[in-house]
């Protein structure tokens, strides 16, 4: 009887250990995927930041050029003799 109880305990321990390893494997898979997702989010942040920076630079340049054009047009309209010649 004692020998049979010891065998069943060993089997139960083995089953529990296997289940534990399965759970660990599952958690490792989940953590790996979450880490990949995190890396993707970091990469996306970097690319989006660079794109936004280039866009901001372009908009700044455009703003300066438009201001210069506005000043030139204002000067030309302020002196209509230039346009009449």
């Amino acid at each position: 009887m004692a020998r049979a109880g010891g065998i069943t305990n060993a089997v139960n321990v083995g089953i529990a250990v296997q289940a534990d390893w399965e759970n660990r494997e599952f958690i490792s898979h989940i953590s790996l995927n979450v880490r990949r997702l995190f890396e993707f989010l970091l990469q996306f942040e970097a690319t989006t930041k660079s794109k936004l920076a280039s866009l901001n630079e372009k908009l700044d340049t455009l703003e300066r050029r438009l201001e210069a054009l506005e000043v030139q047009v204002g000067t030309a309209t302020a002196n209509p003799s230039l346009l009449s010649t």
């Binding site: 936004l52 866009l55 340049t61 050029r65």
Partner: peptide
């Protein structure tokens, strides 16, 4: 969507630069 929006804005800025 964010990428698409950014590309769209970049294209608009390029068109505006061309006009300017």
């Amino acid at each position: 969507k964010v990428n698409d929006l950014l590309d769209e804005k970049v294209d608009e800025v390029s068109g505006t630069e061309f006009r300017v």
